[in-house]
Design a protein around this nucleic acid. Structure first.
Lengths: 121, 121
DNA sequence: TGGACATATTCCGATATTGGAATATGATGG
DNA sequence: CCATCATATTCCAATATCGGAATATGTCCA
């Protein structure tokens, strides 16, 4: 077999730093492709393609305004990711947890190890 | 040029669903590779490789315990992602914002467009 | 020491992604 | 209708990734 699917989910869309930058630019304000090109300094096709990916996963939407295409962020799909990451919050908040685990690990190896001996079980 | 770098940052590491599953398994408890293989049902090399990626970005760490290798989650690197996503929270929480933007967009297009013209469906 | 067990690594084919250049599509104004 | 602006799409080369099979590495036990 080969590579797993991709561009279908927001996690993957955010894997690319450029796409995260685009979202940062679009936070709170609409923007034209051209404006993005100017502010980001990338070739226009690059910008358009990344916008395309973001659109596919629903993170941005576009509206044609006369000759221009105005992009807007759609933060909704970010919430599940934020929530998912949130489920791990206690593991980085609770330092005690890390410390405790480390201590236990140490204790365990101390138990199994007679002081200055070799590795038993 | 070609594809951008990758496996170097946690965002990319999480792009793969399998790696997210591994983290879920490791949440709060240490686990042996074999235990992961059994619980996840994937071939052992697949598990080892994904663990390797997670280790590279610091999301897990391993400790050799006799013949086995015990993996443990290291949630630290997840915090920046959670924080980054958090900066967009108001955009999915604040529905008013969306509504307002939509209204403004509508108003704008009403301005630009002669009052009672045809409205394409 | 040899053999079983646990895990990591290498080699490989299939595929997907990215950026770049060129071009297509779409809309506007004269 | 044409020239131009604004954006999207296509074609392409380079590369990275994933999974699978086989194999290497490392460790313990008889």
């Amino acid at each position: 077999m080969a590579r797993s699917p991709t561009t279908l989910d927001p996690f993957n869309a955010l894997a690319e730093a450029k796409r995260r930058q685009i979202l940062e630019k679009l936070a709170g304000r609409e923007m034209t492709v051209n404006k993005l090109v100017l502010e980001l300094g990338w070739p226009q096709p690059v910008v358009s393609k990344h916008l395309g990916v973001l659109r596919q996963v629903g993170l941005v939407s576009a509206e044609r305004r006369s000759r221009e295409q105005v992009y807007r962020m759609n933060a909704g799909p970010l919430k599940p990711l934020h929530d998912w990451l949130g489920t791990f919050e206690r593991f980085w908040t609770d330092h005690l947890h890390d410390i405790k685990q480390r201590a236990e690990a140490m204790a365990r190896s101390a138990e199994t190890k007679p002081p200055s001996d070799q590795e038993p079980i």
